[in-house]
Design a protein around this nucleic acid. Structure first.
Length: 423
RNA sequence: GGAGAAAUGGCAGAGUGGUCGAAUGCGACAGUCUUGAAAACUGCUGUACCGCAAGGUACCGGGGGUUCGAAUCCCUCUUUCUCCGCCA
């Protein structure tokens, strides 16, 4: 959520930058400013009324003390009208505030100036590429066939027990999954992140805090009896740890990491894009989150990108880094890099990580602040990234490393799996 | 799930209808003293909104109510604690 004060001071810039997302913000920005004016004017009137009422109350109190009941009663009558006006103004104020809030929720974050123009994923800019695309053996199989052949994952069983998109990992498949989680967590810890094991369900306030609500309500599983949401990413609990928190500036940067399953309804996706591990309703992911001083956040974003690149190198996967264009940028993000690995049998790039700087967009909703040099409260910057999402990594590992004798495990992982070949 | 108690500033802890944004202590910050530090002493110390400012308004877990006036009374929700039940 953008700050009203920022919108006011940078009206033209905001409208201009939002165009990069193909978001026509002109009308809504003017509505917001108009409502904010109304809010101020109304608040002023309300305050004056309340001040007058407070004066009366004080006088009545003094009259009571000195035993002048009649005079006190006279004054009481005078407060009736004042009270009615105050009530009306208060109602108006609430309604204005609510409307303003709803409008603010609808405005996405403004893209950083280096975000390339573009309409969709095709317009993303490839900024880095590394690793060579492997030459596969004859009769190479896609990962869902490999998973079946080596009995690593049972998709049909998942359908029976839960539904499509909830696979069972079995034997070496399950162990490989666990190995990846531990590997990623250890790597994050080595990079200075504190490991967190957070709740997998969050309340409504947390959904608002990171921006899943009110817009992407349909993407989350909801448990209505207790009004909890299953997390679509560890970002939600890990970032909401800092909701309503005043961070000490010497604590910057705050770095946390966590492994969680992620639950996504993925309403409206189907077809071959969701084949195998490409898109699941439940999947595992290790997330990294940082809370940072605004002046440092973009340097931090770079270090997070480097961290993820390091993971992909160690897994010996060919990958590329994309700078997302305005049209593909998430609602809450100011700048996002996506990492994609090449899945050789499917012959396509799969997104395995997304690293973003949200600047103050989340912090404003979270009320996560620090005191600056002048003792003034300022919003922090929040950042996060996947490091990494497991299913597509697994897909690429299986496909790229298939050989006649089995599937080879990258060296870095062998210490974690306890085996170097899936047979 | 049942019965009871509680929720106050960074922390501890007073305050049961009127001048309480809130005593006191600790902590933090600034200063005096000191070669330096400690101790002692002095001062200061919440957030948000409106206003050029003076100042005003709101906030004592959240929401609502009673009252001229609520930290204080009532309703409701949440959380914590104690006891009982159930349970990994």
């Amino acid at each position: 959520m953008l700050q009203t004060s920022f919108i006011r001071e940078n009206k033209e810039l905001v409208i201009e930058r939002l165009k990069k997302r193909n978001f026509d913000g002109k009308e809504i920005i003017y509505q917001i400013l108009k409502l904010d004016d109304d809010r101020k004017a109304n608040q002023q009137q309300l305050d004056e009324n309340l001040a007058a009422a407070n004066q009366f109350a004080k006088q009545i109190g003094e009259l009571h003390k000195s035993g002048k009941q009649e005079e006190a009663n006279l004054l009481k009558e005078q407060t009736v009208e004042l009270k009615e006006i105050s009530n009306t103004l208060k109602e108006e104020q609430n309604s204005i505030a609510e409307n303003l809030q709803q409008l603010l929720y609808r405005v996405p974050n403004i893209p950083n100036e280096i975000v390339p123009a573009g309409k969709c994923a095709d317009d993303n800019e490839i900024v880095f590429e590394e690793g060579s695309i492997p030459k596969l053996i004859e009769n190479a199989l896609p990962h869902w066939e490999l998973a079946k052949k080596y009995n690593l994952i049972d998709f049909e069983l998942g359908v029976k027990v839960t539904g499509a998109g909830f696979p069972f990992y079995i034997g070496q498949g399950a162990r490989l999954q666990r190995a990846l989680i531990n590997f990623f967590l250890d790597q994050a810890r080595d990079a200075g992140y504190t490991e967190i094991l957070p709740p997998l369900m969050v309340n409504e306030a947390s959904g608002y805090g990171t921006g899943q609500l009110p817009d992407k309500e349909g993407q989350m599983y909801h448990a209505p009896i207790d009004d909890f949401y299953l997390i679509p990413t560890a970002e939600v609990p890990l970032t909401n740890m800092f909701r309503d928190v005043i961070v000490k500036k010497e604590d910057f940067p705050i770095k946390v990491t966590g492994y969680t399953p992620c639950f996504r309804r993925e309403a409206g996706s189907y077809g071959k894009e969701v084949r195998g591990l490409n898109r699941l309703h439940q999947f595992d992911k290790v997330e990294i989150v940082q809370i940072q001083h605004p002046a440092e956040s973009y340097a931090t974003l770079d270090t997070m990108v480097e961290h993820v690149k390091g993971l992909l190198q160690k897994l010996e996967l060919p990958y590329r880094v994309l700078k997302l264009c305005g049209g593909d940028l998430g609602f809450t993000s100011a700048l996002t890099y996506d990492m994609e690995v090449f899945s050789a049998a499917q012959v396509k790039w799969l997104e395995v990580s997304s690293v973003s700087n949200f600047e103050t967009f989340q912090a404003n909703r979270l009320k996560c602040r620090y005191k600056d040099e002048n003792g003034k409260m300022q919003l922090v910057h929040t950042l996060n990234g996947s490091a990494l999402a497991l299913p597509r990594i697994l897909a690429a590992l299986l496909e790229n490393n298939q050989a006649k004798e089995g599937i080879k495990i990258p060296k870095a992982l062998v210490a974690y799996t306890g085996f170097d070949l899936i047979k």
